[in-house]
Amino acid sequence: MTRSSIAGPGRMLSALLLLSVVVLPAHAPAQAKPETPRVRVATTTSLYDTGLWEVLEAAFEAGAACDLDLICAGTGRALEWGASGDVDVVVTHSPTQEAAFIAARHGRERVAFAYNYFLIVGPATDPAEIGDLSPEDAFRMLSEKATHPFVSRGDDSGTHTRERSIWKAAGLDPVRIRDSGRWYVEAGLGMGSTLSMAAQLGAYTLTDNGTFLAYRDDLDLMPIVIRGEALLNVYAVIVCTRAANPEGAAALSAFLTGDAGQDLIGAYGCESPGSRLFTPCAGTDCGSDPTR
């Protein structure tokens, strides 16, 4: 009867993980060519949920000797992954957060490559009567009435950040808004799920144009507020300083801002009536003069 020695949990975990590295590559699935380098991209959910990435991924992988690993997350989380080096490239849409990311030297350069617009969407009847207002006035009206539900992403995503900046522009404190009543619903979900929830609740929400167009057929939601400088939505790509595969990351950035990528972005979604989902804008001022 010997005394068994129990390894500390940390050691055990490390040993387990190490072992899995040794054991697994032999039969890990879907690693067609193990030597193919992978580029890890953290992409904002609003961009992914439209389906645009599937087109871009196929085109990129055809032209480059790299596999793309696309990982969806809100802008906040995507930038955290970028900062820690867990991903090579981030594709996000929150200028203030991106600026902070660059300032902290997590990435060298933010390159805008496409834009569209945020929309405030809601029930077709517009029960809160905010249709003719600016985004800031519409938000103020919703908070004053406090009777019509508004669904917030609540996940530190680019869309969520934009929502908070509109509250601020309207002279309201986003932190106080959170606690101002049951009309303000924090979903903590991706854009698609948030839209579904808003439709189910008969609520208003802030969404990017692309995701909304991709989903609108399934939803009883209409664009209510579509004009205002506060609604401009610019997508940018940043190669992370701590990238494990900097070459691949740079190649992806070049692809997105290059002709091939820009054409695909511009053409995406145009076959269906309505409007284009994204406007390619690499090398321009990216719609910062919104005269629509």
């Binding site: 387990l16 993980l17 190490l18 899995s20 890990a28 879907a30 820690s84 080096g85 867990d86 701590r242």
Partner: peptide, 29 residues
């Protein structure tokens, strides 16, 4: 497992985050 495997975590150098191996290790645990 995320905190351990993250590039800034103790086993970050293995580059295992977001791989099938990471799922296997995590589920095994």
């Amino acid at each position: 497992v995320y905190l351990v495997l993250s590039r800034s975590g103790p086993l970050g150098g293995l580059g295992l985050l977001f791989t099938p191996q990471a799922i296997v290790a995590g589920q095994a645990l």
